[in-house]
């Protein structure tokens, strides 16, 4: 299986303290990779490094077989859809206008706007200002922006944050459908074990900036058959860490 994302010794220090330490991440193509860890474990920092939003202190990143360098950066990043932390949008513009700007920047066909609005079920709200959207709608608009170019790789940082149970389920089903329907690889981060358990095929567990486990989710169940998945997770991340 091809590895679409590969990090070698990825490290990020803030004033000498390691937010991410010597991380070797491996994401297989066409799969959903759940990036799991307690709050403050280093998930967002790692994902931001993959997107060149912050610079690693040390280590290398390889995406789609190419090393991520200043020269290859934009070419690689244009093949990635992302939703990091809170969704990005211009509140004074409508949903469709927001996507029009991204469509122009990405130079993708105009019809993609209608298509992604349909996928995230915002087609009836396309003319409404984004500032008037509910939190769930804003999240879906963010996802629509990430899907606009139908990228090979989609990076979603806690995409269900702030959603109500039905919104969470809807988002989960949508994410699960992406590899099959559009051939995408999805990296989805969460601090909720149950969330990742229902969505991901592969999992990376991070705690204190270090990768504690990486592999198929099914294999994680086999680590210790006498324990529940939650107990295994707590053993790996340290019981004092919050879920």
């Amino acid at each position: 299986m091809n590895e679409i994302v590969k990090t070698m010794g990825l490290t990020k220090l803030y004033k000498g303290a390691a937010a991410v330490s010597n991380l070797n991440m491996r994401v297989n193509e066409g799969r959903i990779y759940g990036f799991l860890g307690p709050n403050g474990a280093g998930k967002t920092t790692t994902l931001k490094m993959l997107l060149s939003l912050i610079r690693p202190t040390a280590g290398e990143i390889e995406i789609m077989g190419k090393p991520l360098t200043p020269n290859t950066r934009i070419q690689i990043l244009r093949g990635i859809g992302s939703l990091i932390e809170s969704p990005s949008f211009y509140g004074h513009l409508t949903g469709a206008e927001n996507l029009k700007i991204l469509q122009t920047l990405l130079d993708v066909p105009k019809k993609n706007i209608d298509k992604v609005l349909q996928i995230v079920r915002l087609d009836n709200q396309r003319g409404k200002k984004a500032s008037a959207y509910s939190l769930g709608m804003k999240q879906r608009l963010g996802l629509a922006g990430a899907l606009l170019s139908f990228p090979k790789l989609l990076i979603l940082d806690e995409p269900t944050n702030g959603l109500d149970p039905s919104g969470i389920q809807e988002m989960r089903e949508l994410i699960k459908s992406l590899p099959k329907e559009y051939g995408m690889t999805v990296i989805v981060s969460s601090h909720l074990l149950s969330e990742i358990d229902q969505m991901a095929e592969d999992v990376g567990i991070i705690a204190n900036g270090k990768m504690m486990y990486q592999g198929a989710l099914d294999n994680l169940h086999d680590v210790d058959k006498s324990k529940s998945l939650e107990e295994i997770f707590l053993d790996l991340t340290g019981k004092e860490q919050s879920l």
């Binding site: 939003l53 990043l77 244009r78 992302s82 809170s86 509140g91």
Partner: peptide, 17 residues
């Protein structure tokens, strides 16, 4: 300010130099 309010810089930075 529209970029800061909408958290758009992180979106723009992955689409353009």
């Amino acid at each position: 300010d529209i970029e800061h309010k909408g958290l758009m810089l992180k979106k723009l930075a992955v689409t353009e130099k």
